[in-house]
């Protein structure tokens, strides 16, 4: 039963107000993409033990999708930020790097 802060409305939301949307920062591959690209887009997921970037929707709240950086093993939440981000904010990346020196980056 996680709590995540919605970056849009500022509510520290109980997990029961949220719906999950799995891995964040996937690049969409549509018509014209290779089988490998499409397969990676549809099916290849990192599923790491450790730092992970996820999509969450404040479904019972403001209805907005947001992204969260979280440690899947300790459940520490490093930060949340709007879904309209093609990469995690730099300060968040710096924070994670400081806390998890072995982290290889979000890509």
């Amino acid at each position: 039963m996680l709590t995540l802060e919605c970056p849009y409305c500022g509510v520290m939301a109980d997990e029961t107000e949220l719906s999950p949307g799995y891995e964040a920062h996937l690049k969409r591959y549509g018509p014209g993409s290779s089988d490998e690209e499409f397969e990676a887009y549809m099916f290849a997921r990192k599923n790491p033990k450790g730092v992970h970037f996820e999509r969450w929707r404040h479904a019972y709240g403001c209805g907005k999708w947001f992204l969260a950086a979280r440690d899947t093993a300790t459940l520490e939440v490093f930060g949340t930020y709007p879904a309209q981000s093609s990469a995690p904010p730099q300060d968040l990346q710096d924070k994670i790097k400081a806390k998890r020196p072995d982290w290889k980056g979000y890509k």
Partner: peptide, 11 residues
């Protein structure tokens, strides 16, 4: 509805 919002907000 959620599916539409997903694509509009996230893509």
């Amino acid at each position: 509805h959620a599916h539409m919002e997903d694509w509009l907000q996230c893509e």
